[in-house]
């Protein structure tokens, strides 16, 4: 059957396929199915979000949702200004990135350019294990150990659950993502470029920062984008360490529930299906999805414009 179109009518010494390769076809179908599952999941998520979101905006005006700074969807009377949880998400993500990018990149440069092969072989798996620590454990670590410590140093009033500590620990969580993927990108830079740079009298630091780093930039930015997405969507650490009382503030010493932590907290309560509070969860979910998607899209274009292509 597979050979029907190939004209393998000539016997024996034909170059045509001698027998159909069913195994290969089966593998191809399986791989395609696997690829389709992830696409189908994405489509399914969007589909599931759309309907309740539309219903939500039937009852709450778009203007109130995006322009009001009062967020209390589960109280009565309810308030649906989403701005505080959006800004909280941005602030916690920003704190996390400020922690993770310098530390993660330093680790990546060390592993890729300074460490001997043996040290690298020992350290990289440890880094990847770090990425596997359950975030619920990190959340309690934040609340019980880090928060009291930070509060004792912080010069301003600080609540026990606060955005700063949550942001710091989310940052810790994403260090392995930044470090590991950036290290991959830097290790992939051809050795010839390094040799060329060393041969011009560059120190190791100069080679790392002026040749390897720019050449690996597109991969590094991809790593940072992935880390940002993970930070913006991080739930458990924020639920445990950032509290649930949303005020519109930029003070990270306050409680700072985010979009994701709101979804988790509201979703784990017993809201009646179809109620406006229930639909709020989906509206916030849609917004989080859209923001993450937009960020990925914009940064992908940004990367294409600024990367240094080495062949």
């Amino acid at each position: 059957m597979a050979s029907a179109g190939r004209g393998v009518t000539a016997p024996g010494n034909s170059l045509g396929r001698s027998r159909p390769r069913y195994g290969e076809t089966a593998v191809k179908v399986l791989l395609l199915a696997a690829a389709l599952v992830s696409i189908a999941t994405t489509v399914g998520i969007v589909g599931a979000l759309i309907e309740p979101t539309i219903k939500f905006f039937g009852e709450v005006s778009v203007f109130e949702f995006f322009a009001s700074t009062d967020w209390a969807p589960l109280f009565s009377p309810p308030a649906f200004g989403v701005i505080p949880v959006v800004t909280n998400t941005l602030i916690i993500t920003l704190i996390a990135i400020l922690v993770a990018v310098p530390l993660g990149l330093a680790a990546a440069i060390y592993l890729s350019e300074y460490a001997t092969a043996r040290v690298r072989k020992a350290l990289k798996p440890i880094l990847e294990v770090l990425a596997g620590i359950p975030t619920v454990a990190l959340g309690f670590f934040a609340l019980t150990l880090v928060s009291p410590f930070v509060r004792s140093w912080w010069p301003f009033p600080m609540e026990a659950k606060n955005g700063l500590v949550a942001g710091l620990i989310v940052g810790m969580m994403i260090i392995p993502i930044v470090a590991s993927l950036s290290e991959d990108a830097m290790s992939a830079v051809p050795g010839g470029l390094r040799e060329g740079a060393y041969a011009l009298g560059s120190s190791r630091m100069i080679v790392s920062l002026r040749v390897v780093f720019p050449a690996a930039l597109s991969g590094i930015i991809a790593a940072v984008i992935l880390a940002i997405s993970r930070a913006a969507g991080e739930t458990m650490i924020v639920v445990i360490a950032a509290g649930s009382n949303p005020t519109f503030t930029v003070n990270p010493g306050k409680e700072m529930p985010t979009m994701a932590s709101f979804i988790a907290q509201a979703g784990s309560g017993d809201l009646p299906v179809g109620s406006i509070a229930y639909d709020t969860i989906f509206a916030v979910g849609s917004l989080l999805f859209a923001l993450t998607f937009a960020m990925n899209f914009i940064s992908a274009r940004f990367v294409r414009r600024f990367r240094e292509v080495y062949e």
Binding site: P190, G192, E195, A199, P214, A215, E308
Partner: peptide, 12 residues
């Protein structure tokens, strides 16, 4: 200075 077998200009 040194010049290598495979040309290795920086991607700049």
């Amino acid at each position: 200075g040194m010049v290598f077998q495979k040309p290795n200009p920086f991607p700049k």
